[in-house]
Computed example of a mutant assay.
Amino acid sequence: MIRKANLQLLIDREYGIGKHGAKAEFARRLGKQADYISRCLYPAEKKGGKNVGEDFAREIEREFSLPVYAMDQQRLGSDTAKTIDVEGLPAPLAQKIAGYRQVVEVPRYDVAGSMGPGTEPPEMNMVVENMSLDANWVRNNLTYTKIDNLKLISGRGDSMAPTIRSGDAVLVDSGINTVEDDAIYFFLMRGKLQIKRIQRGLDGLTIISDNGQYPPIEVPGEREEDITVLAQIIYWWTGRSF
Rank of each mutant, 00 (worst) to 15 (best):
I207F: 04
I184P: 03
R223K: 14
G204K: 04
D182L: 11
P220V: 06
K196P: 06
D226G: 03
P216V: 00
I207C: 03
L188T: 07
I198C: 02
T178W: 03
Y214I: 00
F186G: 01
E180W: 05
D182R: 12
D181Y: 05
D181F: 09
I176H: 01
G204P: 06
G221Q: 14
Q194G: 00
E180G: 12
E224D: 04
Q213L: 09
V172I: 15
A183N: 13
E222I: 07
D226E: 15
G191R: 03
D203C: 07
A169N: 14
R190S: 08
V179P: 00
G201K: 06
P215Y: 01
S209W: 00
D182A: 14
L171F: 12
Y185H: 04
G204V: 06
R223L: 13
I217R: 05
P215M: 02
T228R: 15
N211A: 08
F187A: 02
G221S: 11
D168T: 12
L205A: 06
V219K: 05
D226T: 10
P216E: 03
R165I: 11
R197N: 12
D210G: 02
E218D: 11
E218Q: 10
F186Q: 02
K196R: 15
G167S: 09
L193S: 14
E180H: 10
D203Y: 09
L193H: 13
Y214K: 01
E225L: 09
D226P: 04
F186T: 03
V170E: 01
R200K: 15
V170K: 11
T206R: 08
D168L: 12
V179D: 01
V172L: 10
V219T: 03
D226Y: 03
Q199K: 13
M189L: 13
R197G: 14
V170M: 11
R190E: 10
G175Y: 11
G221L: 13
V170C: 08
E222L: 09
V219L: 07
S174C: 10
D168A: 13
M189R: 14
Y214R: 08
E225A: 15
N177D: 09
G204D: 04
I198W: 05
I207Y: 03
E180K: 13
E222F: 14
